[in-house]
Design a binder for these strands. Structure first.
Lengths: 145, 145
DNA sequence: AGGAATTACTTGAGGTCATCAACTATCGAG
DNA sequence: CTCGATAGTTGATGACCTCAAGTAATTCCT
């Protein structure tokens, strides 16, 4: 007993459970924020991918789902007037999904409200920020499956 | 220029995006692990809540969904032979959902495989473990909505 | 150049998830 | 003992998700 280790460092299993809890809470917040605008989680997720026009195929890859699934989600977003399909002049097979002005506004609102919900973020110090970024980046490298 | 701050600390917005990426990657891994056993994400999630018999109502609260939704998911898990409904002798309205032996085995396998997928966890040092636990606990307090 | 393989997207079928409204059965309080 | 609340189910409806099949446009290949 050294007397200097008040809380033991959490085990990998405990961290895994905490990650599960965090992921669930994150998506619950996201779904709530999206629902406040009449959108589902997936619709909100797709919207937030559209910082620039994106081909349907690319969306399917980003969301790790079937292309036919994207068709339906874009249909519904288009029905809400948040998104537009525009032809790619260079390759007429491709349809690029683009935000309408209302879509851009909605994305900004969703992101702003989500940031508010994750209020704790602003309270983090530089050291914690760096650690969080580094650890998450290592645990979930881009393109994890 | 002090010359001693190579990477600037990430902003709250950057951290939010990283959390989004991490949450998505976590669930993709979970879904893949569950699918390897013929289960969906929600079925796997519910299974992993059953460390002990749990009333349907409680499951609905834990998953933050309607009670009628739980009925269907438990139906399917029961169909797979992973779960059993047993009556609560003290209150005959209540049905407690219990893992079968095969269900317990499946939960163990899922958790073990998920831990393998999150291989980076084992490489974390004590300091990072503590930081991760503290920060996630602060960002996503139990019962966040 | 011209036919074959590839790629982008859509459609339709079938299953899971999710919520709501209505219903049954049981419990608990007055 | 009746009334109100609670636990669970059912049925309707819509979103998500995958697969198989189909159309249109592009690219490859000889």
């Amino acid at each position: 007993m050294t007397g200097t280790t008040p809380p033991a460092a959490p085990t990998s299993v405990e961290l895994m459970d905490q990650l599960a809890q965090a992921a669930a809470a994150y998506y619950r917040s996201f779904a709530t924020v999206a629902a406040a605008r009449g959108l589902t989680l997936m619709q909100g997720k797709m919207l937030s991918l559209l910082r620039r026009p994106v081909p349907m195929r690319t969306l399917a890859e980003l969301l790790a789902c079937d292309a036919s699934n994207v068709t339906g989600i874009v249909d519904r977003l288009e029905g809400h007037g948040l998104v537009r399909r525009e032809a790619d002049p260079a390759d007429r097979r491709i349809k690029r999904v683009t935000l309408t002005e209302e879509g851009e506004r909605t994305v900004r609102e969703i992101r702003a409200e989500l940031l508010t919900t994750l209020g704790g973020l602003d309270d983090l110090g530089d050291r914690d920020r760096r650690t969080l970024q580094r650890v998450l980046g290592r645990l979930f490298p881009a393109g994890t499956d």
